[in-house]
């Protein structure tokens, strides 16, 4: 176990080292810090002096060592646009993204478990087949398109005038197929609750919650089909196992078997895969935040690209890289802990 632990953690450090090298290469290759610093009127000699002073003429490994040393002390440079330390800018945008991810995860949890379990217990039922085909279609719809359709349906509203209004049925059908809209489709709203420092949350006011609905549903929509399929597959496998058959033979109620005995063993792989997926969600927040103008890290990153705000791009890369590495390492370790059949290094099985 110790060997496994050491191997995983050293791998995490190695990955972080590679990410920092890539980040450094981007910073070094793109843009000239001197250009940002001095105006046109500064002479060539003065430029050279500043260049020497800033250490830009040092060998590349010395520059990298300085970059990495600063990064370890939490200094990733100053954003050109905001004029503040990049980590501070990211910290200000982090709560919005975190809120989005938490909201989406809640939606996924509430819907995927019952649907997945039901589809596993009754694979032939009409409702199961219906949910499975919906999830196939769901996987084929890109997250930004779901978001746009949701905005059209529930924010702008749709008026259907397809059916003749002479009959009562036509009017009713038109009304039933039309939607009112009215849900907010951009930003986080005005009524944010201050938690501490720069952290604000929309979870505690109706206005904030209203603003969360569409972005969270969009973000959840891309992961939901995946989780339903995963839970269904795992559950079906567990239901085939001997201990479930034994519990049946013992005469336990099917509710007890399904939800106590089987579900417990189903959730284990689901939680570990879920941890990895949570990291992948960061990529999708970029898309969701763009559609809804959600002031989180993803939108900040995209704006940094259009503004060529190199320090902020580099800092985002480092922070997101760190988030990914930490989640993956923790998930790996948990998986190794709870599932001893995973091949641990240094031991022959």
């Amino acid at each position: 176990m110790l060997a496994f632990l050491v191997q995983r953690i050293s791998q995490a450090f190695l990955v972080m080292f590679v990410i920092s090298m890539i980040a450094f290469a981007i910073q070094d290759g793109l843009g000239d810090p001197l250009q940002e610093l001095v105006g046109m009127s500064v002479s060539l000699e003065e430029r050279d002096a500043i260049r020497e002073d800033m250490g830009l003429n040092d060998p590349i490994y010395v520059q990298y060592a300085r970059f990495a040393g600063n990064a370890l002390q939490g200094d990733l440079g100053i954003s050109y646009f905001y004029g503040k330390p990049t980590l501070q800018v990211i910290a200000e945008h982090l709560p919005a993204t975190l809120e989005l991810v938490i909201g989406a995860s809640l939606i996924i949890l509430v819907f995927s478990v019952p649907i997945g379990v039901y589809a596993a217990i009754r694979p032939q039922a009409f409702l199961s087949k219906f949910f499975m085909s919906i999830s196939t279609v769901g996987i084929s719809i890109p997250v930004f398109l779901t978001a746009i359709v949701l905005i059209q349906l529930f924010s702008i509203g749709v008026t259907i005038e397809l059916f003749p209004t002479e009959t009562g049925w036509g009017t009713w059908l038109n009304g039933a197929l039309s939607t009112d809209g009215g849900l907010p489709s951009y930003g986080r709203g005005d009524e944010l609750t201050h938690l501490f420092g720069t952290w604000t949350s929309g979870f505690f006011s109706w206005d904030g919650l209203w603003h969360l609905v569409l972005p969270c549903v969009s973000l959840a929509s891309i992961m939901l089909p995946l989780f339903i399929r995963l839970i269904r597959a795992e559950m079906m496998e567990v239901l085939q196992s001997d201990y479930i058959r034994y519990a049946r033979a013992k005469g336990l109620s099917s509710g007890r078997i399904n939800f106590l005995h089987a579900l417990k063993n189903t959730m284990l792989p689901v939680i570990t895969v879920g941890g990895v997926q949570l990291g992948i969600m960061v990529a999708y927040t970029i898309l969701t935040e763009t559609v809804f103008q959600w002031p989180g890290m993803g939108l900040m990153f995209l704006e940094a690209i259009t503004r060529s705000d190199i320090p902020l791009i580099v800092a985002y890369l480092m922070v997101v890289g760190l988030v990914f590495v930490i989640t993956n390492t923790i998930v790996d370790l948990i998986y190794g802990l709870v599932n001893p059949t995973v091949k641990l290094t240094g031991k022959k099985a």
């Binding site: 981007i26 290759g29 793109l30 990895v276 990291g279 992948i280 960061v282 990529a283 999708y284 970029i286 990153f301 690209i305 060529s308 190199i310 791009i313 890369l317 997101v320 890289g321 990914f324 993956n328």
Partner: peptide, 18 residues
């Protein structure tokens, strides 16, 4: 583990910036 979309976005961003 970084998700292919994230890698693509970052590489695209770097290319566009350069």
């Amino acid at each position: 583990s970084f998700s292919t979309l994230m890698v693509a976005i970052i590489v695209g961003a770097v290319f566009k910036a350069s």
